[in-house]
Computed example of a mutant assay.
Amino acid sequence: MAHGVCELLWIRRLLTKLGFKPEKPMELHYDNKSAIDIAHNPVQHDRTKHVEVDIHFIKEKIEKKIIRLPFVKLEDQLADILTKVVCGRVFHDSLTKLGIGDIYAPTGG
């Protein structure tokens, strides 16, 4: 999640330099509710000791309204078709959501 936030900050800085300063928080869609909850309220316990710096970095960006962390259901996570083995239904649903049609269909011309 911290790496994703860093990428969003880079994109935000680039857009600002190009004259398109984002007016709303940028969204990092995430499919892990526990990680989102910890980022919003970093309670120090055994599960988070090794990520303490990342948690505070992310929480700071959330509090400054630079980023938002909306939850995405696992089946709606489009990046999964690029990083994991998914069933055929999920694969074809994701292609449809990405606007990718049947590559074997004849074209209109």
Rank of each mutant, 00 (worst) to 15 (best):
A79K: 03
H3S: 15
L9Q: 06
D76A: 05
M1T: 03
E63S: 13
P42G: 01
V43D: 02
R68N: 14
E52I: 06
K73W: 12
N41G: 03
A35K: 14
L95C: 05
K61D: 04
H56R: 06
K17A: 13
D102F: 05
L14D: 14
L69M: 11
D31T: 06
L9P: 04
K84E: 08
K61W: 10
P70I: 04
H45G: 00
V86Y: 03
L14R: 13
K65D: 09
A79I: 01
E23A: 15
F91E: 03
Y104N: 08
N32V: 05
I11G: 15
I103R: 04
K84H: 07
K61M: 09
I11T: 15
K84D: 09
D54Q: 06
D46I: 10
I62R: 11
G4V: 07
Q44H: 12
R12G: 14
V90R: 07
A105E: 12
D54Y: 05
R12A: 12
A105K: 00
M26K: 02
C87E: 09
I58H: 02
L28E: 08
K33C: 05
G4Y: 00
Q77T: 10
G4K: 04
V85E: 07
K59G: 02
V5A: 04
V5S: 03
V85A: 15
G101Y: 02
V43W: 09
L74M: 09
V51H: 02
I58S: 09
I100V: 01
K61T: 03
L15S: 07
S34T: 11
A79P: 08
I55C: 06
V72Q: 03
K49P: 03
A39D: 02
T107P: 15
G99T: 15
H40R: 00
H3V: 11
V51N: 02
L74T: 14
H3G: 12
T83G: 09
T16E: 05
V5P: 04
E63T: 15
D76Q: 01
P22L: 14
D93V: 08
L8P: 01
V5M: 07
K65E: 08
G88F: 05
D76E: 06
P70Q: 11
K49V: 08
G99L: 11
L74Y: 03
H92A: 04
K21Q: 13
V43A: 07
K64F: 07
H3F: 08
R47C: 11
L69R: 04
D102P: 11
K65C: 06
D80P: 00
A39T: 00
P42H: 01
I58Y: 02
T107R: 12
